[in-house]
């Protein structure tokens, strides 16, 4: 029963969505539009589930004085401060959140919430994102070492594209006469690499992905795929 019901629901909803794609007549016309609403309703409940889980795990760590419990204090404090200020910001009545009187004025809460978001959250987020620049450099260094013929081709292609997108690339081969510059002028070569070999490779991957999605969905709809339910036993 525990497996039959989810499999039945998956099969039914999957089949319904496939039919609704081809049948524009009511009641099928609105299925594609309405199913995401059901997902959003479930996801809204999941927010409470997520918040509850976060508090439970970190409060348990704090109470047990687990290894790294101080990180949990920061997490819980951040969560609660933003939650309270967010609720105060949301509420229409001044100084109250869902009937609970707060000492903070509504305008203050809004300002504080926005300040915390802009002065703490956004810079932290930007810091994490900026790490990418350093990681790109270290990953490129490893990937572009010409150890094998394939890596050498990769290195050459990357070099042409990198140089071709800078003014230097234009200057290096600006002297080329007409018929050759159409093919070997570095910016043109870079554009050709991006437009043809790169696009062909991307499309190949995308065709494979589309077929993979069809196959995976069909396995789920037909109930052949049961790994997420603990296997086929």
């Amino acid at each position: 029963m525990k497996r039959t019901v989810p499999l039945f629901i998956t099969g039914l909803v999957g089949a319904l969505l496939i039919v609704s794609y081809y049948v524009p007549h009511p009641p099928f016309d609105s299925v594609e539009r309405k199913i995401p609403d059901y997902f959003n309703i479930i996801a809204a409940f999941a927010f409470i589930l997520g918040g509850g889980n976060l508090l439970r795990i970190h409060l348990t760590r704090i109470s047990r004085r687990d290894h790294e419990w101080l990180y949990s204090v920061v997490t819980v404090t951040g969560f609660l401060v933003m939650l309270v200020l967010g609720l105060l910001k949301m509420t229409g009545a001044e100084g109250s959140a869902f009937g609970v009187q707060a000492n903070l004025d509504l305008a203050d809460a809004r300002l504080l919430y926005d300040w915390l978001y802009r002065a703490i959250f956004v810079p932290c987020q930007a810091t994490m994102f900026s790490l990418l620049a350093f990681f790109v450099a270290s990953a490129s260094y490893r990937a572009f070492r010409a150890k094998t013929p394939e890596a050498t081709v990769l290195l050459l292609a990357a070099f042409v594209i990198l140089v071709g997108r800078t003014p230097v690339g234009h200057l290096i081969t600006a002297w080329m006469p007409e018929p050759f510059s159409d093919y070997f002028h570095i910016p043109n070569l870079s554009a050709w690499l991006m437009s043809f070999p790169n696009t062909a490779g991307q499309r190949t991957i995308q065709i494979g992905i589309a077929l993979g999605i069809i196959s995976n969905s069909l396995r789920l709809i037909l109930g052949v795929e049961r790994s997420h339910l603990g296997g086929s036993d």
Partner: peptide, 14 residues
């Protein structure tokens, strides 16, 4: 995502 968490828990438990 919390929904992924609850689904993953069921999957791993099984």
């Amino acid at each position: 995502r919390s929904l992924v968490m609850s689904t993953a828990r069921e999957t791993v438990k099984e």
